[in-house]
Every structure is written in C-alpha cells, then in structure tokens.
Design a protein around this nucleic acid. Structure first.
Lengths: 126, 126
DNA sequence: TTATATTTGCAACTTAGTCGCATTAATTAT
DNA sequence: ATAATTAATGCGACTAAGTTGCAAATATAA
C-alpha cells in the first residue's frame, strides 16, 4: 500500500529527491534527515513511494540500496527499465537514458533485467 | 592476498563449490558448514578465492552476496564477464554463457558491467 | 623436529534493515 | 470548527550480514 496522507516527513523526503537527479542511498537519507525524521519512518516512506511508482530502488555494487526518481512508472507497474551507473570514486548512482534489450534465454522465463555499470562518472573524471 | 596454505577449511569450501554449478550464498555456506568451520573463516576464504580468480561474487536482487566458480579468470584480473540469472522462486543464481556488450557512455569511463536477470529458472518452471 | 608465519576460532562489534506497539497527526464526518 | 477515525510516526529492541582484533592452532619451511 502506497502513500495516503501528505505528511511533513513525506515532504522532507520528496524535497531531498527534488534536489538531485542522482540516486540517494537510504543510509545517506537517514543521516541527512536524522534530526527531523526517524529511521523507520524513512524506510517506510521509501517503500511506499516505490509502491506508488514515484521512486525505484537500485542495489549498488556493495549491496546497499539507493533510490531514484522514476520517469514513467505508475502504481501498477515499474516500466522504467534502464541501466544504472555507479562511480567507483564517489559511489554515486545515476540513471542512464539507454534502453536495455532483454535477452531471451532458453528454458528460462525472463522477468526483469538489472544492469549496473561501474566506472568513473563525469564529475570524478575531471 | 590470496590462498597460501592448503587447509582443511579450504578443502571443505572448495568441495561445496564442486558439488554444483550454481552460485552459493555466503549465508548458506555458513549454515551448511557451521559445525565444521567458523563464520569468519568462511568469509575470509571466500575473499581469498576471489582474489585468486577462483570464485567471483554476485550481489543478488536482495543485496546478499553469492559466489560462483570462475571459468577463465586469473589472479591478475577477473575476465569473466557474463550475466547472472536469479530465480524469483528458489532464489538460486546461475551464470549465463552469454557475453555482454559493454556500452560506451559519453563522459563516463566504463569499467565493469553487472547484469542480473530476474525470472523463473528451468527447475522452477516445471 | 623445531621455528615461523599463515589460518583459525571466538567474541565482540558494526551496519543495514525490520517490527510491534503506544502516541501523534492527517483526514473525514458531524 | 470540533470530534472521531485511522494512517503515520517514534521509539526501542531486534535480526541478519558482514567485519575485526587477538590469542591459539596448524601448515609449511628450515
């Protein structure tokens, strides 16, 4: 079940995502907002926003979750299916505007494809 | 630094990987071998085998690490660059013998590409 | 067979994330 | 505008994955 009430905490979380196009790790969000929102609340809001198709989760190379804004997803399904880029220097994850071709594999039923590209981002290359 | 001494614990871990072609999660390995090997030891052995190019790590859809045998990697570098398939029913991860084309992205320096395909494996489809 | 250096076990710790429950605060009804 | 309803929050305690320091054990080299 997604968001029902427009609360202060929700606004604070949404503000954070409106400040950047990059993904934000749950850990950072918890750190940044710890004086205003409780950890559990942040986790719950992120879950709900994901249910609503507002955010999508990405698992980074170290297994830690990050969230980014969706561009064309709805409450019904996540249609966003793009690769993500994680920088080895700064750790930031960004969505890439490239479409991924979903391969067909004999004997397997393919559902979703997660592509995480590792390297150096434009910021860190300079 | 990789493996230096051939110990009993190492043999037990290697045996586990010789029993299957699927990836094994650290968690399962720790469970299966808990009467014989300490948790820390298992984590350390897996790290070393990865350094040596014997195993490679895959982060599953839930962020939990699994390890699988490498086919053509060396101590110097992991040349294995194939997609992995994780079944939504049984959770097992398998290496796919398909090569991944590494895309070039303007302003980014691409290093590695991780492809995790989600769906139903042949076992679970029956 | 002894010396030496790697490996191991243990226990304590860290970090990410979850859960139940009482309290607070949006929203709806009056 | 106020009271009633119910979602959302805070808190603390918990789980699960993974890490670390150090003393004891055990491979290997001498």
């Amino acid at each position: 079940m997604g968001i029902v009430r427009k609360t202060q905490s929700l606004q604070l979380v949404l503000n954070a995502f409106n400040k950047t196009t990059a993904a934000i790790s749950t850990v950072d969000l918890v750190k940044d907002l710890k004086s205003e929102i409780n950890k559990s609340t942040i986790y719950r809001i992120l879950d709900k926003l994901t249910d609503d198709g507002v955010l999508h989760a990405v698992i980074g190379k170290n297994g830690v979750k990050q969230y980014a804004k969706c561009k064309s997803c709805s409450k019904k399904e996540h249609t966003d299916n793009h690769p993500h880029f994680q920088c080895n220097s700064c750790g930031k994850i960004n969505c890439l505007d490239i479409s991924v071709t979903i391969p067909q594999i004999p004997n397997y039923k393919v559902n979703t494809v997660h592509v995480l590209i590792e390297g150096e981002c434009s910021q860190c290359l300079q």
